[in-house]
């Protein structure tokens, strides 16, 4: 009995020592750290170079991260938050909990360049209409063509009230049509098969063959080419531009692990992190990679024009634009 007790004690003290390492708590979205995401290998390679441990706290998506910060306020346990996007950084900024990232912004490679000193991009992706080339031979080449196309060929969208890509499409419509967005939505309405609650539901319906088009990313076909060896699913190139999503991270001002958080953000733009992005997060790297992108990425659509509202514009108008959308599609 005494032996068991001593063994237990030593086990406890041993784990005590193990826990004494500096722990960096990172809030991120769930698919980033799932088995299929880049999280596990990124954690391993960062921990190799520091006497520390990364603790992931995984929430649904970028909006869930923002809400968690709103709930916790200044008492947040996060040192770093990874996975907000530029549509919500204004609101994140207004919380006043983020500090300067202190990383050289010239290292950032995103369309349009980067100057923000509070949030740092780790990847980006242009949205696109992805279509099934077995069913659609002549894809639309502009948003105008999509809006006015054959109502028999349906598209699956995401709900802007519940999903980030859904909001992305709403902003895309708004940036092309401006004040006439509601008319465009009315014209598009007969083509919409359904508005799914999130990207994964929408994409699953698309793969099931429910509709020949879905709102997704320019990079989506790369998954099918690399993992399924098929080029059946393609992204439609739009001449009037593609809306951009930039995913960012930031460090909290109140974090007791400033140096380590800073080290992580620097690491984030290094090849060890960035190499994992294309084939595990299926987005474009926002920094230098040490291995060339897989061939499939060379075959992807390269948007000639990038559409993007500033975070301030989105934060100011989002509610009003969502109300306008709701009225137009229900009218």
């Amino acid at each position: 009995m005494r032996k068991v007790f001593i063994a237990l004690l030593s086990l406890i003290s041993w784990t005590g020592v193990a826990v004494a390492k500096e722990i960096l708590t990172i809030y991120t979205y769930e698919s980033f750290v799932s088995t299929y995401g880049p999280g596990p290998s990124i954690k391993a390679s960062f921990e190799k170079n520091c006497d520390c441990e990364i603790k992931w706290v995984a929430l649904g998506d970028g909006v869930a991260l923002l809400n968690r910060l709103k709930l916790e306020g200044k008492n947040s346990k996060a040192d770093v938050v990874l996975g907000l996007d530029t549509n919500i950084t204004e609101e994140a900024h207004e919380l006043g909990v983020f500090g300067a990232h202190g990383v050289n912004v010239n290292l950032v490679k995103v369309p349009g360049g980067w100057t923000n000193t509070e949030f740092l991009p780790f990847d980006y992706g242009h949205f696109a209409i992805v279509y099934d080339s077995d069913k659609i031979k002549v894809p639309p080449t502009s948003l105008e063509e999509l809006v006015n196309g054959d109502p028999a060929q349906k598209i699956i969208l995401e709900d802007p009230r519940a999903s980030t890509p859904g909001l992305g499409f709403l902003l895309w419509m708004k940036s092309v049509y401006g004040d006439r967005a509601d008319e465009a939505w009315k014209k598009l309405a007969p083509r919409i098969l359904t508005t799914a609650p999130g990207w994964s539901e929408a994409y699953a319906l698309f793969i099931k063959g429910e509709a020949p088009m879905v709102f997704s990313y320019v990079t989506s076909p790369a998954y099918h080419m690399i993992e399924e060896k098929t080029s059946r699913y393609k992204a439609a190139e739009f001449s009037d531009g593609h809306y951009l999503q930039i995913e960012v991270a930031g460090m909290l001002e109140a974090s007791p692990h400033q140096a380590l958080a800073h080290q992580f953000l620097n690491f984030m733009l290094s090849p060890a992190f960035q190499n994992e992005i294309p084939v595990k997060n299926w987005m474009m790297p926002a920094g230098e990679t040490s291995v060339p992108l897989p061939d499939a990425f060379g075959q992807l659509v390269k948007p000639a024009k990038t559409l993007l509202f500033t975070p301030g514009e989105v934060s100011k108008n989002r509610r009003e634009w969502i109300a306008e959308w709701l009225k137009a599609v229900n009218g």
Partner: peptide
């Protein structure tokens, strides 16, 4: 299942 769908793996 949610995770797998979130990574294109609906099959």
């Amino acid at each position: 299942t949610q995770q797998q769908m979130g990574h294109y793996r609906s099959h």
